[in-house]
Structure formats: structure tokens, C-alpha cells
């Protein structure tokens, strides 16, 4: 890494506390993480460990109670809503477990959507290109209800990459798919990631999926612990 290339993500001493009726609940504190551009990082953990909350903090969708986050060198929590939204539209993308395609729009229109938000003029053409890349060229004008679960997630992947984001957040991308289809989707996701040289931050509870990333972290009892390759193997063996 040269001096001029900032980290894709730099989280420093993050804390997140929620107010409850009795006493404040601290989900995590003093949590730090650095991810370089082009890296793929998995965050694994038990249900309720706070993986999704951490993702929403890292993606600038929520604000930490303490600590700072810099994305591509920018402290986005200091930006106002408008600037932060513009920044998100330019640099970030998301893939969800439930695909979240709008049912009244065709596959192509769903892929166009983030480009339309940015006001890009060649939205339709780029959407078609991305759909071709995920192997859905013939399905451009199909509605989500006419697509299988795997195809829907491929449309979601195309939608995520169509803006050429610097960082892609994927939250349990295979959670709603059967194992075989899930594997295909993961293959496609990592292929696309390699092609577009995107930084991938993956939230999952699937160790096999996490193992495909260059680095893995486990979120456990409010701490983020890096999982080394041999540890992962050991876990598998158990």
C-alpha cells in the first residue's frame, strides 16, 4: 500500500450502545478493523452477536456511539445526510439475504435503479451489460416473480456491481438459497468481485463461505477476533 492509497475501511475503537428501559446495553466497544482496497473480508458470528449492526456502522448506515470510521479515507459520519447519500451511491453497494428486488420492475429496471438514483444517463445499457455478465441476458425483461431464487440473487448481484462500487457489503447472500444454488451464487459473486476489483465485506454464519475470503473475523461477545486459516480448519475438524 502506498501513501496515496487510503484503506478501503478503517474503523477505530468503535462502540455501539443501545438505550433500554432498565440500563444501556453495550453491543460492542473498542472495536477496530482495517481493510485494504480489493480485499475480501468475512465477518462471522452467532445470531444476535451484532454482525448486522456492525455492517450498518461500517457502511455508514448508522452512527457509532463512540469511535470513528473512515471509508476510502473519508470520515463519512461527519457528512450530512445528502452528502453521505451521494457518497454511498458512488462508492458502496449492498447484497441482501432476501434479494430485495422490486416486484413491479423487470430485472433490467431493478438493475438500473441505483444508476437512476445517481442520475446516470446510460443506465439501461449498463444494466444490460451487467445482466449479461451474470448470465441473465435473456431474462432482462422478466419480472422477479418469473425468476428462480438463484436468478433473483444474480439480478441483485448485477444491481450491486452496476455502479462499479469500491466496497460491496453482502449480508448473508446465500441465506435464502439451497446449497447448490448458493454455491453457484458465491462463485459468481467472487468472480464478479475479482473482475471489478471491489472490496468485499461479507457477513455470514457459514464458515465455508467465509473461508473463501482473504481474511475472516469472528464477532463474539463484543469483540472482533481475526480467525487465522489453521483456526478455521480446526473449527471445521471439530
Amino acid at each position: 500500500m502506498t501513501e496515496t492509497t487510503p484503506y478501503a475501511l478503517e474503523a477505530n475503537l468503535l462502540a455501539k450502545t443501545f438505550a433500554t428501559q432498565t440500563e444501556p446495553l453495550t453491543l460492542f466497544e473498542n472495536l477496530s478493523l482495517t481493510i485494504e482496497q480489493g480485499e475480501s473480508v468475512a465477518i462471522i458470528g452467532q445470531s444476535g452477536a451484532g454482525k448486522s449492526t456492525l455492517l450498518s456502522l461500517l457502511a455508514g448506515l448508522d452512527e457509532p456511539t463512540d469511535g470513528s470510521i473512515r471509508l476510502l479515507g473519508e470520515d463519512i459520519n461527519h457528512l450530512d445526510d445528502e452528502a453521505r447519500s451521494r457518497w454511498r451511491a458512488t462508492h458502496l453497494s449492498f447484497i441482501f439475504q432476501s434479494f430485495h428486488l422490486l416486484p413491479e420492475l423487470t430485472a433490467q429496471e431493478n438493475v438500473q435503479l441505483p444508476l437512476e438514483i445517481r442520475g446516470d444517463r446510460d443506465a439501461a445499457e449498463r444494466a444490460r451489460t451487467l445482466l449479461t455478465q451474470v448470465g441473465l441476458k435473456e431474462r432482462c425483461h422478466h419480472y422477479p416473480s418469473q425468476l428462480s431464487g438463484g436468478e433473483q440473487q444474480r439480478v441483485a448481484i448485477a444491481r450491486a456491481f452496476v455502479t462499479a462500487p469500491h466496497i460491496l457489503f453482502a449480508d448473508e447472500p446465500t441465506g435464502n438459497l439451497d446449497t447448490k444454488t448458493g454455491e453457484k451464487i458465491i462463485h459468481q459473486l467472487f468472480d464478479m468481485n475479482a473482475t471489478h476489483q471491489t472490496t468485499l465485506i461479507l457477513i455470514t454464519h457459514d464458515p465455508a463461505l467465509a473461508a473463501r475470503c482473504s481474511r475472516q473475523y469472528r464477532l463474539e461477545q463484543g469483540k472482533l477476533l481475526e480467525v487465522l486459516p489453521q483456526q478455521e480448519v480446526a473449527t471445521h475438524d471439530c
Binding site: A59, D81, R88, S93, F94
Partner: peptide, 9 residues
Amino acid sequence: LLRTMGATE
């Protein structure tokens, strides 16, 4: 969905 994709409030 639009908000996470970068649309402002």
C-alpha cells in the same frame, strides 16, 4: 432500498 442505494431522504 433506495436509501441504502444512496438516495437521500
